[in-house]
Amino acid sequence: MSKPKEIFVRLDRCVGCHTCNIACAVEHSKSKNLFEAISEQPTPKNRVYVEWVPPEHKVPVLCRHCEDAPCMHACISGAISRTKEGVVITNSDKCIGCWTCVMVCPYGVIGRHMETRKAYRCDRCPDLQAPACVDACPTQALVYRTADAFSGDVRQDAAREMISGEGR
């Protein structure tokens, strides 16, 4: 069985432009259009965050869909489950806004819709070929690959660096 794709972050490539934030919020709006999304109520929320660590580190953070997802086990209403693609999702109808998931998420990536009192997080854009944030990222700091393919890339890059270093 081929493993599902995941969103990986290449920290060295992020320039902190926040394009992913906007693409994410727009994809999770009713209109799916930036100009209309801005005035929608409740305000569409982004589920990817770009944090800044002084002096110059930019860190995109989003739901890791943890293998042993603490939020899923902690949920007191059965609202959080895992799809067969491995995506941990929050069912808004079942969410009762107790925020237990917010309390246990070690990445701090579960947001709260105050208007509707529902928790939300990255759903890997089920309607799209690739998640909106990945598609929008101008530097490919966000990539959508299987874990095997991604670690393969990382190994190859490292090998290339080593070889070019030796050649010098």
Binding site: H73, I76, S77, G78, A79, S81, I96, C98
Partner: peptide
Amino acid sequence: FRPMIPFMITGKKKFSEMMLIGQGPY
């Protein structure tokens, strides 16, 4: 889901909506 029983008092949720098996990781 025991923490949901107050919804039985408000009537906001039916028993079928509080059942554990088939929900979340169960």
